[in-house]
Simulated scan of single mutants.
Amino acid sequence: MFFYNEQTRAAASGRLDSSGNFTVLQDLSGDGFGQWTHIVPGDSQLFFYNEGTRGAASGRLDDSGNFTMLQDLSSDGFGDWTQVVPNGSLIFFYSANSRGGCIGQA
C-alpha cells in the first residue's frame, strides 16, 4: 500500500496481513516526492500525474516497501486529464473539459 499527502508531499508504504493487521514498511517522506493530484497503481508500478502542471512520473514499490522512481515523464506532454483510472496494467485517461480520453499502459 502507498500513502501520500499532496499538501506536505509526505509518503509511506505499508502492508495488511491476512488478519487485517497493518504494518508501516517505510517512511518515504524524505524522498522528495513531487506534487501529484492522481496516483494510480499499475501491476507493480505507480503512475503519478499532476492535473495542474500536466506533469507525470512512474515508480515502483518493492516487497519491502522501498520506492524507486523509474521515469520523469513531465516532458512527454501529457494532456489535460481530469480522471486517471487504473485497470490492471492499463490506465484510462479522461478529460471532462474536452470529453476526450485515451488508454495507456503502465
Rank of each mutant, 00 (worst) to 15 (best):
N50I: 05
L61W: 07
F3V: 15
T53R: 02
S64R: 01
G65E: 09
S74F: 11
G100D: 10
L61I: 04
L90M: 10
S19L: 11
W36K: 02
G101Q: 07
F78G: 06
F93M: 13
R54G: 05
E51L: 10
S19T: 12
T37Q: 02
T82C: 01
A10H: 10
F67L: 13
P86H: 09
I91G: 09
G59L: 04
F33N: 08
T37A: 01
G30I: 10
V40A: 15
V85T: 11
A106W: 06
N5K: 10
T82A: 01
S18P: 00
T53W: 05
S89H: 00
L25E: 09
V84A: 04
V24N: 09
R9Q: 15
D72Y: 04
C102F: 11
L73R: 01
G88H: 03
S58G: 00
F2V: 03
D72A: 03
Q7L: 12
G77K: 07
S64C: 03
A106R: 01
V40R: 11
P86Y: 10
G65N: 06
A10V: 10
R9W: 14
A10D: 14
G30S: 11
D80V: 02
T37S: 07
G101A: 14
S95W: 04
A10S: 13
G100E: 09
Q26N: 11
D17H: 08
Q83A: 06
D63K: 06
G20D: 13
N21V: 05
L73V: 06
I39A: 04
A106S: 08
D62Y: 13
F3T: 13
D17R: 05
D63M: 06
F3Y: 14
G101K: 03
E51Q: 13
G42F: 04
I103G: 08
N50V: 03
L25R: 00
Q7E: 15
Y4K: 00
S98N: 07
F47T: 00
G65C: 04
D31S: 08
V40S: 14
T53K: 03
Y49S: 04
S89Q: 02
L28N: 10
A106L: 09
Q105E: 10
G104T: 14
Q105S: 03
M69V: 01
L28A: 10
A10W: 08
S58T: 02
F33A: 06
G104L: 11
H38A: 02
Q83L: 07
Q105D: 06
D43N: 04
N50C: 04
D17T: 11
A11D: 03
Y94F: 09
G100C: 02
D62L: 12
T37G: 03
A57Y: 09
S98G: 07
M1D: 13
G79V: 05
S74G: 13
Q83M: 02
R99M: 13
S44A: 06
G52N: 12
F92D: 12
L46H: 08
S75I: 03
L46F: 11
S95F: 07
A12P: 10
M1F: 08
G55M: 02
